[in-house]
């Protein structure tokens, strides 16, 4: 089956400094994939590059295919059909993505006019239906309101409505709830999963919050320093992480119940992209580092059905984890 989107060996450099160092990921229709990693790991850049949204001075190479057709470096006219039409994106700070001096109706109708063949009253009716769909009460009247008249959670709902205007096959949600309070975050995540189920839409959820990704995605990819280091179904990744970095991330998360334990912090910090260590980028912080780690950067290799890890010490790391579990 042809994947909906497949990215192969995607590389991005800014002014000669590589920030994305060969990313491979594929998405099936209707699938929800999570992308986790710390700031600077390249989660957002991957999708901005794939959609041609990076500034001109970024050097991008590799291949991005939508339904088998290459879209990386495609002409603007073709990309305009893809962006907002086939693939839509929402961001962390919804308020800055809306124009403060235009009504919600104007902005929603603009998106509809661009991507849907609708005329006159049908546009307004559709805008109203979208607002209803994302749970804005009294949608008909609220269409005439301005962005500042809505709360933060409602503005993110409006952004979701705008993203849905083009009937996309894939929604890329880049930290959609990071700026929101916990109870509102739960509402927005619930909305996203309902919408996805109803419309059969695929979703990429980019987040630094492992819990958010675990609960809302079928599959998770962990990124570190511009590469995917582990890819697995959500439940397996959290129950049995293999890459030492993935293990570190999960160990660093304080538990909400059960006995309190000292957090297993990963020592050191993320390497500077301009001075990347030779070999595995995680090696300087890794507890299981061996001589082989400094030789070459490990490639993402399958270790089980639907699971792959980029670590030469994967076997050792896995045994170490099982050993801890057996104690």
């Amino acid at each position: 089956m042809t994947p909906l989107v497949s990215i192969e060996d995607l590389r991005v450099a800014f002014n000669g400094v590589p920030v994305l160092r060969g990313v491979d990921i594929a998405l099936q229709k209707g699938e929800a994939v999570g992308l986790v990693g710390e700031s600077g790991s390249g989660k957002s850049v991957t999708w901005l590059a794939a959609l041609g949204l990076l500034p001109r001075h970024a050097q991008v190479s590799g291949s991005v295919r939508l339904d088998g057709r290459p879209i990386l470096g495609a002409p603007a006219a073709e990309l305009d059909q893809v962006r907002g039409g086939r693939i839509a994106m929402i961001f962390q700070d919804p308020a800055s993505a809306l124009n403060p001096v235009l009504t919600i109706r104007r902005q929603l109708c603009e998106a509809l006019a661009l991507h849907r063949d609708l005329q006159g009253n049908a546009v307004k009716a559709e805008a109203r239906r979208l607002l209803d769909l994302v749970g804005i009460p009294d949608a008909g009247r609220r269409l005439e309101a301005y962005p500042h008249e809505f709360s933060g959670g409602q503005v993110q709902r409006i952004m979701i409505a705008m993203a849905l205007a083009g009937n996309p096959d894939l929604l890329i949600a880049d930290e959609p709830t990071t700026a929101l309070d916990a109870t509102i975050q739960a509402q927005i995540l619930e909305l996203l999963s309902t919408v996805r189920r109803e419309l059969g839409m695929a979703m990429v959820l980019i987040s630094h919050d492992l819990g958010v990704v675990a609960e809302n995605c079928d599959r998770v990819a962990v990124m570190y320093a511009g590469r995917i280091v582990e890819q697995a179904p959500s439940n397996q990744l959290f129950a049995d992480p293999v890459h030492p970095y993935a293990q570190g991330l999960i160990g660093a998360l304080p538990p909400l119940d059960g006995p309190r334990r000292r957090l297993t912090a990963i020592p050191g910090t993320v390497p500077d992209p301009a001075h990347m260590p030779g070999g595995c980028a995680f090696a300087p912080r890794c507890a299981l580092v061996a001589d082989a780690c400094g030789l070459a950067a490990p490639t993402l290799a399958p270790i089980a059905d639907d699971r792959s890890v980029a670590c030469v010490r994967a076997e050792v790391s896995r045994r170490a984890l099982l050993g801890i579990a057996a104690e």
């Binding site: 709360s151 959670g153 409602q154 309070d181 916990a182 109870t183 509102i184 975050q185 739960a186 509402q187 995540l189 619930e190 999963s193 919050d209 492992l210 819990g211 958010v212 675990a214 609960e215 809302n216 959500s234 439940n235 959290f238 129950a239 999960i250 998360l253 909400l256």
Partner: peptide, 20 residues
């Protein structure tokens, strides 16, 4: 209940209506 946890699906989550 709104605090997401790895390994726990959102079954039985208490969703508050309305804004703060």
């Amino acid at each position: 209940s709104a605090s997401p946890a790895p390994g726990r699906r959102s079954a039985g989550r208490i969703l508050l209506s309305g804004d703060p």
